[in-house]
Simulated scan of single mutants.
Amino acid sequence: MADFSDLVARAVSPAMSREEREEVYNVVRAAVQRLQEREGLAADDPGILLQRHLIEETIRDVEFDITRFLTLRRIAEAKAAQDAEAARHAGRRR
């Protein structure tokens, strides 16, 4: 499953919109469903249900990582702006 997680993580990027990432996730879900159908197991088979759960968990984890990355970037940008403003104010006081 680690290879699958890596594949999903590489297929999306923080530069993509949420809608673009969702399109990728839908392709992944459909591909896994086709693979499961080829196995010929019932839709309520425990193995199938576990795979589907792991896919959704992986997608959730990737979205969390992207959200964390974007949040940290925004914080860094806000800090840089705040530092620049403080430097401007310090320059005026001299």
Rank of each mutant, 00 (worst) to 15 (best):
Q33F: 06
L50N: 04
L7M: 12
R88E: 14
R21G: 09
E85W: 12
R21L: 06
Q33R: 15
P46W: 00
V8M: 03
I75H: 06
E57P: 00
L54I: 01
D44N: 13
E37N: 11
L54Y: 04
R88Y: 07
R38W: 03
R73G: 06
V12D: 02
A84N: 06
R34N: 06
P14G: 08
D6V: 08
R68K: 14
T67M: 11
G40F: 03
Q33P: 00
A90C: 00
D83K: 13
S5K: 08
I75T: 11
P46H: 05
V12I: 04
M16D: 06
A31S: 15
R34S: 11
V8H: 05
L7R: 13
E39W: 14
D61S: 08
I55D: 01
A42R: 11
E23A: 14
A2K: 08
D65T: 08
A84Q: 14
L35K: 09
I75C: 05
E63L: 04
Y25P: 05
R21Q: 07
A86N: 10
A78E: 14
A81S: 13
R88T: 07
D44S: 05
V12Y: 02
T58R: 05
E19M: 05
D83W: 08
E23V: 12
K79L: 13
D45Q: 01
F64I: 04
S17R: 06
D61F: 02
R52F: 00
A43M: 06
D44M: 01
A84F: 09
R73W: 06
G47N: 04
V28E: 07
R68A: 11
Q82T: 12
A30C: 00
S5W: 03
E19H: 12
Q51P: 00
E37G: 00
P46Y: 01
A80D: 15
R52G: 03
D45T: 01
M16Q: 09
D3K: 11
E19V: 07
A81T: 08
A11Q: 07
F69N: 09
M16H: 09
E39M: 11
